[in-house]
Design a protein around this nucleic acid. Structure first.
Length: 584
RNA sequence: GGCCCCGUAGCUCAAUCGGAUAGAGCACGGGAUUUCUAAUCCCGCGGUUGCAGGUUCGAGUCCUGCCGGGGUCACCA
C-alpha cells in the first residue's frame, strides 16, 4: 500500500492510460460526509453527458480493489477504503518513515532560511518570537521534504541605532557593566538605548518649544548630531569607538544566546552587517559604473525604480556612508557566493518591510544577478496588542524572556504535584513553550495577530498542549501495551470500521499531503490545524472506545492506529518545533 | 495622496485551483470519570462573510467601486 503521493500518482497513471481528460481533483472528504477521499468530477460531466455515476465508475477504476463504498452526490464522488486497505496502511506506516513522515520531494535541494535578524540595540520581543517560530518551523518542514537547510542569522550590528545605545551607555550608565547592574546583557543595552531616546526626545521638545519645526529639531538636536558623528567615527575605524562597539555587542550576543538556547535554535551561519556593508558599497560602485545607478550633485547615490512603481531609492548617503539596503545587497550577494545552488534564499521578515524587499529584488534583478528571482520574502504580520502596536516609548513591548518565563510558571501550576521538582520544571518548560509556539504558528503567517496580555495564552482548546497531551496519551498507552506483551505491528483486520476509527485513519492518511503543502506554502499554520484535527480525532477514539481492553480484532487494530497516530503527531510537533513532553 | 495587506459568530481564528448546508477554539448553558492520564470527550447557543454591483452551473474566495483598519512611500533600521 503506497502512501499519499505514490498512491495518487499511481491512480493518475491509471487515468492517463484511460485517456481521461481533464484529470479530476482528489481531496479529503469533508467531515460531515461519509467517505475518506472525494473526487470532483464536475469538469468531466460534459463528456459524460451529465452522467455522474458513469464518470465515477471510470474515475475509480484504477483503485477499485481498495474501495469499499462509493457515494455519488452531484459531481462529488465520495469513497471509503476497505478494512484490508487500512490494515496494510497501518503496517506500512509503522515500518517506514520514508514516504510517510519524511518525503523525498526536495531531495538534494538546498535552501537558506534567514531569521530572526535582530538589531543589537534591544532585547528580543514577542515579534521576534513569532519570527523565530516561523523560521524554525519552515526550516524543519523543508528538511522533511529532504532538502538541506542552512539556518542563517543576520545581525544588524551597525547603524545609527547602535550609535544611540552606545551614546546612552556613555552618558547614563558608564562605566557600569551588565553584571554590575544585575541585568541580562541584551536588556542592559536596551536600557541604554531607551535612556538615549528619552533624553533625545527631551532635547527635541525643547527645540520645538523654542520655535524650531519638528523635522529640523529631530536632526539638529545635539544628541542626534553626536550619534551621527559616532556612526562616522565607526565607519572611519576609530579604535576607541570600535572597542566600545565590540564591548556592547558582546553583551547583547551573550543575552541573545541565552534566549536562543532556551528556544533550542541554532544557526549554521551568522552574517554581520558590519562585515557585509562594504560588499554592498562595492556593488553600488559596480552599478554606478554600469549606469544602473546615478550620483546626485551632493554626492548621494540613487536607483530610479519609478518605472516599476517603486520610486527612487537612496543607496549611499551624501557623506558616503551606507544605508540599510546597501548592506542588504552585500549580504544577498555573499549568500549566493557561499551557496550558489540555493533553491530559495528565504527572508523571514515582517510585512512592514514588503516595500523594502521588493526594492531589494528589483535592484538585484537590475544588477543582473541570475539568482535574483530565487530570493523569497516570507512576509509575516505584526503581533499587535488589543490597543494597537507594541510601543517602546509606552512600555507596552512584550519581552521575549519575560513571556517565556511567564508561560513556564503558568504551565508549572498545572503539573502533577507527585512528580519531582526537576521533572515538573522540564514539563512546564515543554508545555509553556508548546503553548506559546503553537499560538504564534497557528495563524497564517501573513496575517497580523492580536496578543492580549491580560488573557495571555491558552493551555486548553486549540493549543499546543492539546497536541502534546494527545502525544503523551498515545505514548503511555503503547508503553502499557508493551508491558502486556502486545505489539502494535500485529494488526488484525476488523470486519467493519467505526466512525471514530475511520475518521482518524482518514486524517492519518493525509499527513504527507499537509507536510508538503505547509512546506511549499511556507505556512506552518496549515500543519498546526492539521495536527489539531488529528489529535481531536485520536482523543475521540481514545475517549469513546476501549483499546487495550477491547476484544480482538479491534484491540490490535486500535493499537496500531494509536501507534501510527503517535508517529504522525510526533512528526507534526517536530515540524512545528514544539517540544515533546515525556508526560503531562 | 500613490502603492501593498486585511475586514468571516461577542472574542481569537479556519474554509484546499472558484465547489457540498461557511467550520473550530475561547466565552456562555447543559452533560460524561468504579475505566488505557478529564490539559479530555459529548450536546446546545451563536452568521446578511464590511457595503453595492459584476463574472458563472456554482463566489467568503475572482473583477469594479465605495466604507473601515493597518503598513509603507526616510540621507532610520
Amino acid at each position: 500500500m503506497p502512501f499519499w503521493h505514490a498512491f495518487l500518482r499511481a491512480w493518475e497513471q491509471g487515468w492517463h492510460q484511460m485517456q481521461l481528460s481533464p484529470l479530476p481533483r482528489v481531496s479529503l472528504t469533508p467531515p460531515d460526509q461519509r467517505g475518506t477521499l472525494t473526487v470532483n468530477v464536475f469538469p468531466l460531466l460534459k463528456s459524460y453527458k451529465g452522467d455522474a455515476t458513469k464518470a465515477a465508475e471510470d474515475v475509480l477504476a484504477p483503485i477499485r480493489p481498495y474501495v469499499a463504498h462509493v457515494e455519488v452526490i452531484k459531481g462529488f464522488v465520495n469513497l471509503s477504503f476497505t478494512p484490508a486497505f487500512w490494515v496494510d496502511f497501518l503496517r506500512e506506516a509503522q515500518k517506514a518513515a520514508e514516504g510517510y513522515t519524511r518525503l523525498s520531494l526536495a531531495e538534494g535541494a538546498r535552501l537558506m532560511v534567514e531569521y530572526p535578524s535582530p538589531n543589537t540595540n534591544k532585547p528580543l520581543h514577542l515579534g521576534h518570537l513569532r519570527n523565530l517560530c516561523i523560521g524554525e518551523s519552515v526550516s524543519r518542514l523543508w528538511e522533511r521534504l529532504g532538502a538541506k537547510v542552512i539556518r542563517a542569522n543576520l545581525v544588524n550590528d551597525r547603524g545609527i541605532h547602535i550609535s544611540k545605545s552606545m551614546l546612552g551607555w556613555k552618558k547614563f550608565f558608564a562605566p557600569q557593566t551588565p553584571q554590575e547592574a544585575g541585568r541580562k546583557g541584551d536588556h542592559f543595552v536596551g536600557d541604554c538605548y531607551v535612556a538615549f531616546e528619552k533624553a533625545y526626545k527631551a532635547q527635541v521638545e525643547q527645540l520645538v518649544a523654542q520655535g524650531m519645526p519638528e523635522g529640523e529639531a529631530l536632526v539638529k538636536a545635539p544628541l542626534f548630531q553626536e550619534a551621527q558623528a559616532l556612526l562616522r567615527a565607526w565607519e572611519a575605524g576609530d579604535p576607541e569607538v570600535l572597542a566600545l562597539w565590540r564591548q556592547m555587542n558582546s553583551w547583547v550576543y551573550e543575552g541573545f544566546e541565552a534566549t536562543f538556547q532556551r528556544l533550542q535554535v541554532q544557526f549554521d551561519r551568522t552574517y554581520y552587517e558590519s562585515e557585509t556593508y562594504l560588499l554592498g558599497k562595492a556593488i553600488v560602485e559596480e552599478g554606478l559604473r554600469q549606469g544602473i545607478f546615478f550620483r546626485e550633485e551632493d554626492g548621494s547615490v540613487w536607483a530610479d525604480l519609478t518605472d516599476e512603481g517603486l520610486g527612487r531609492k537612496i543607496l549611499l548617503r551624501r557623506d558616503g556612508t551606507s544605508v540599510y539596503i546597501t548592506q542588504d545587497l552585500g549580504t544577498a550577494d555573499l549568500k549566493f557566493q557561499e551557496y550558489p545552488d540555493l533553491l530559495y534564499s528565504v527572508y523571514v521578515i515582517g510585512n512592514e518591510q514588503d516595500h523594502h524587499m521588493r526594492v531589494l529584488s528589483a535592484l538585484l534583478r537590475r544588477l543582473g544577478r541570475p539568482w535574483a528571482d530565487r530570493i523569497y520574502h516570507l512576509s509575516y504580520g505584526m503581533v499587535e496588542l488589543p490597543t494597537g502596536r507594541m510601543k517602546t516609548r509606552e512600555g507596552t513591548v512584550v519581552d521575549a524572556d519575560d513571556l517565556l518565563e511567564e508561560m513556564h510558571v503558568r504551565a508549572y501550576e498545572l503539573t502533577d504535584e507527585s512528580m519531582d521538582e526537576s521533572q515538573r520544571h522540564s514539563i512546564a518548560e515543554a508545555v509553556g513553550q508548546g503553548a506559546l509556539r503553537f499560538y504564534l504558528l497557528r495563524t497564517d503567517p501573513k496575517k497580523n495577530i492580536v496578543f492580549d496580555p491580560a488573557e495571555s495564552i491558552d493551555l486548553k482548546g486549540f493549543t499546543g498542549p492539546f497536541l502534546q497531551y494527545g502525544y503523551v496519551r498515545a505514548k503511555r498507552l503503547l508503553e502499557k501495551a508493551a508491558e502486556q506483551g502486545l505489539s502494535p505491528l500485529e494488526v488484525s483486520e476488523p470486519s467493519t470500521l467505526l466512525p471514530a476509527e475511520e475518521g482518524l485513519l482518514q486524517q492519518l492518511f493525509a499527513l504527507p499531503h499537509f507536510i508538503e503543502a505547509a512546506a511549499r506554502g511556507f505556512d506552518p499554520a496549515l500543519l498546526a490545524h492539521y495536527g489539531y484535527e488529528l489529535t481531536r480525532r485520536f482523543n475521540e477514539l481514545y475517549q469513546t472506545l476501549p483499546i487495550l481492553t477491547a476484544p480482538e480484532p479491534q484491540r490490535g487494530f486500535r493499537l496500531a492506529l494509536s501507534a501510527v497516530y503517535m508517529r504522525a503527531i510526533e512528526a507534526v510537533l517536530e515540524s512545528l518545533a514544539i517540544p515533546l513532553p515525556e508526560r503531562m
